[in-house]
């Protein structure tokens, strides 16, 4: 029995692992050298979390890596917390949903409380220190940055918080390359807002160590 001989022409069973993935632009940061990373964005509805997950996924795709992105749907996405998960890997991704996160980005207290559990012990917890006033205790690295305040100061628009946060995430962890992130952000934002979003992104990427407020390592 030949497993592949049975398929009609063209409908052959094969996984994406057979495609070669050329590597592009370099990535720098705490998670840059991982060949498999799981990222979760969480917060409350309306904060643009799904968009953040999608931008990161598109950026990883631009990096020619394998990506799976899933998110909360329906009533789950309306009230309470909403989440968007991105799995990035150098090889084909089999199990499609998040197992335990390497990086959790929390934009509300409720979400931080609820989802810190999904982080692996040696993972990184990043939160908006303006929103999460009482960060949950977590043994890994904890980074609090006042994303919303920084975005408002930089662009005058709190709506740019998610782009600024993405900049900070990538600046610190390097889960995707800066080049791909920039490309993905520019594809995503509404026409007419490219300039403010570019500023927010640059501000996030340029975050310096002093602004991190690393609680524990």
């Amino acid at each position: 029995m030949n497993p592949s001989a049975n398929a009609p022409q063209g409908v052959r069973a094969a996984g994406p692992e057979e495609t070669e993935t050329p590597r592009v632009s370099a990535r720098v940061g705490l998670l840059a050298d991982r060949d498999f990373v799981e990222v979760r964005f969480c917060g409350s509805g309306g904060q643009g979390l799904l968009l953040m997950g999608l931008i990161l996924a598109v950026a990883a795709n631009h990096d020619h890596r394998c990506v799976v992105q899933t998110e909360s749907y329906g009533p789950e996405a309306r009230g309470g917390h909403s989440r968007s998960d991105v799995i990035i890997s150098d090889t084909a991704i089999d199990y499609p949903t998040l197992d335990s996160a390497d990086l959790l980005v929390a934009l509300s207290q409720e979400a931080a409380d609820g989802y810190t559990r999904s982080l692996r012990r040696e993972g990184i917890l990043m939160y908006d220190s303006g929103k999460v006033t009482n960060p949950p205790s977590f043994p890994g690295m904890t980074i609090g940055v006042p994303f919303t305040r920084l975005a408002t100061e930089e662009t005058g628009r709190p709506q740019t918080t998610n782009v600024l946060t993405l900049g900070a995430v990538v600046g610190i962890t390097g889960v995707v390359s800066v080049e791909s992130l920039t490309k993905a952000v520019m594809e995503a934002v509404p026409a007419g807002t490219t300039e403010v979003n570019a500023r927010a992104l640059a501000r996030g990427l340029a975050l310096d160590y002093a602004e991190w407020m690393v609680d524990s390592c």
Binding site: G10, T19, R65, V68, I93
Partner: peptide, 23 residues
């Protein structure tokens, strides 16, 4: 999960799995 997730989907894959018009 399969219906809602987004995944990398390369044109090579599309090309390879594509049935030909004769099908």
């Amino acid at each position: 999960v399969v219906g809602h997730m987004r995944e990398s989907f390369s044109p090579e894959l599309v090309g390879r799995y594509r049935l030909t018009s004769g099908d």
